[in-house]
Design a protein around this nucleic acid. Structure first.
Lengths: 194, 194
DNA sequence: AACGTATCAGAGGGAACTCTCTAAAATTGT
DNA sequence: ACAATTTTAGAGAGTTCCCTCTGATACGTT
C-alpha cells in the first residue's frame, strides 16, 4: 500500500487547532503549521491542497465533534429534559475541550468559508441542516409556536450557553463549575417552562 | 497651522471598519485600507505609525461608541429599568450600527491586542474598568449576591443580547425587530426579577 | 527480489504586505 | 514675500507567505 504516513491528517489538524485556539484563525498559516509540527511543506500540501482546505477541515472536524454530543442530548423524548441537556452539553463540552471550544466561538466565515471547495461547503450545509432539524423537533416537542419557536430554542440551547462560555474562554479562564446551574433559569424562561 | 488634511483619521478608520465588518480583522491590512480610500501609504502611516496602532484605534473607537449608550442606560436609578434598558441598548445599537456591531462581536485579541502600544492598552483597561464598575453598581442595586451577581448581570445585559445579535449578524441578516421582547424573560430570570 | 504506491523532503518562484525614506505641496503666521 | 508646519505622494527594501515542482524514501504485494 505504500509508505506509512509520518504526519497524518489528524495530527496536522491538531497543530492547526492549537494555533487557531491561541491566536485566532489568521494565525493558521501553512508555514505556521509546518513549523509547529516540524514537517516539510510537501507533507502538509499532500494532505491539504491549499490553505482553505486546511481551514475547512479544521472547522468541520471541530463542528462535527461538538454536534455529535449535542444532537444526542437534544434527542431525548422528554422535551424539557432534552432542552436542558442540550444547553448543559454546550457548556460541558466547552469546558472539557478548551481549544476546540475557542475555535467554535468563531464562525465559518472567519475560517474563509467563501473560499472552500464545493464539497466542503456542502458538508457544512448538511451539518447545519441536521441541527436545524433537531432544533425544530425540539421546539415542537416543547409546544412552541412556529414563528419564533425555533429562534427561542436556538437561543436557549446554543447561543446562551455559548455566550457564557465565550466570556470566560476569551479572557483566558476556564469555564467555571457553576455555569450549568447559572443559565438554567434563563433557559426555562426562554422556553416558557416552569 | 499647515496643510489641511485630505485623509483624516476618522475617514481612514471608516474604511478599516468596512473591511473588518465584511471580512474580519485579518482583512484590515495597511494596503487594503490604502486601496480602499485611494490614499498613498505615507498618509496612512502619518496617522497610524503601524498596523497594531490602526487596529487598536478601530477597536477602541468602536468600543467607546458602544459603551457610551450602554453606560447611560445602566445608570438609571431603578435597578430593574436599568438592567432592561442596558440589555435593550445592546440590541438596538447593534441593529442601527451594523458594521460596528460586527466588529464588536470579535474580541480585542482578534485585533492584535498583544501588540498594541502601552497607552492603547491602558485606554482599553480603563474602559473595561468603567463597565465593570457600572455592572457592579447595577448588581448591588438589584440586590444580587457578591459572588455570582456580577456574572449574572454581565450575562443578562451584555452576553445574552450579543448572543442573539451574533446569530443574525454572522448570517448576514439584520437584527430582527422582536429581539428585545424575545430576551426580556431571560433577562428577568437571570436577575431573579418577577 | 522487484515493483507499484503513498509519502517524505525541501528548494525556489511569485505575490502580498509592512514599513522607511525622501521630496513636494498646501496652508498659516510674521 | 518668507518661514514654519503639516500633510501628501510614492518608490523601494525586506520579510513572510502560498504554492509548485522534482526527486528520494519506505512499505506492501507478488
Amino acid at each position: 500500500m505504500g509508505r506509512p504516513p509520518r504526519y497524518d491528517a489528524d495530527s496536522l489538524l491538531d497543530a492547526a487547532l492549537a494555533l487557531a485556539a491561541a491566536q485566532g484563525p489568521g494565525a493558521v498559516t501553512m508555514s505556521a503549521v509546518i513549523n509547529s509540527v516540524g514537517a516539510p511543506s510537501g507533507s502538509l500540501y499532500h494532505r491539504f491542497p491549499n490553505r482553505p482546505a486546511l481551514l475547512a477541515a479544521l472547522w468541520l472536524r471541530t463542528l462535527e465533534r461538538f454536534q455529535a454530543g449535542f444532537l444526542e442530548a437534544a434527542a431525548d423524548e422528554d422535551g424539557e429534559a432534552a432542552a436542558l441537556a442540550a444547553a448543559r452539553h454546550t457548556i460541558e463540552w466547552s469546558r472539557s475541550h478548551h481549544e476546540q471550544a475557542r475555535v467554535l466561538l468563531y464562525g465559518a466565515a472567519d475560517f474563509g468559508h467563501e473560499e472552500w471547495s464545493a464539497t466542503a461547503r456542502r458538508r457544512l450545509a448538511s451539518r447545519q441542516a441536521l441541527v436545524a432539524e433537531a432544533i425544530d423537533a425540539l421546539a415542537t416537542k416543547l409546544g412552541l409556536g412556529e414563528n419564533d419557536g425555533r429562534e427561542r430554542t436556538t437561543l436557549a440551547t446554543i447561543d446562551l450557553p455559548l455566550a457564557l462560555v465565550r466570556r470566560h474562554l476569551s479572557a483566558g479562564e476556564p469555564v467555571p463549575a457553576g455555569a450549568e446551574r447559572l443559565i438554567e433559569p434563563a433557559v426555562r424562561a426562554l422556553l416558557s417552562l416552569p
